[in-house]
Each structure stands twice: as C-alpha cells, then as structure tokens.
C-alpha cells in the first residue's frame, strides 16, 4: 500500500468526522479482524494494512459519507471499480 493510500484513509476519517473508536466499530461491523490499536497504526502510517483491510476501512468511511449525502470519495485498492 502506498503512503498516499494510508494518508487518504486518515484524511477521510477526519473529513467524515469520525473518531478512531467510531471508525473501528464500523470497520469491525463490516467484518474487520484488526484491533482498534492496529487500525490507528494503519491511519498513522506505521502499520501497513492488507488490501482487504484497507478496502474495509475505505468502505466504512464511504458508508459514512453516503449517510452525509456524499458519494464514495475514499478510493479502494482491490475494489477500484467501485468508484
């Protein structure tokens, strides 16, 4: 995963107005297996998530953006065709 992809997740989290705990809960509800601490590591760029994990976090953020009336601004890695 590129640094930019990791940074995009953190930018998305801030833009979505989600706390780390809120985002982890959404990621966990989607089926994520990483701990809240590991998720913070992904967002801070000190741990590299798998592509699957990255896209779960991206989707958790994008579901929040849809709730806010936005589209899917956070890019996926494996799910590039999701837009």
């Amino acid at each position: 995963m590129s640094d930019d992809a990791g940074g995009a997740l953190e930018r998305g989290r801030r833009q979505a107005g989600l706390s780390h705990a809120d985002l982890w809960l959404r990621y966990f509800a989607l089926g994520g297996m990483s701990t809240a601490l590991e998720l913070e590591g992904f967002l801070a760029g000190v741990l590299e998530p798998s592509i699957h994990d990255h896209d779960l976090v991206a989707h958790a953020l994008n579901e929040r953006f849809v709730e806010l009336g936005d589209d899917h601004p956070v890019a996926y890695l494996a799910d590039a065709d999701l837009g």
Partner: peptide, 9 residues
C-alpha cells in the same frame, strides 16, 4: 465480501 461491497457502492 467484495461482491457485497460492490453491491453496496
């Protein structure tokens, strides 16, 4: 899971 996400998007 990708299929589910694709449908969701």
């Amino acid at each position: 899971h990708r299929l589910l996400r694709r449908s969701s998007a």
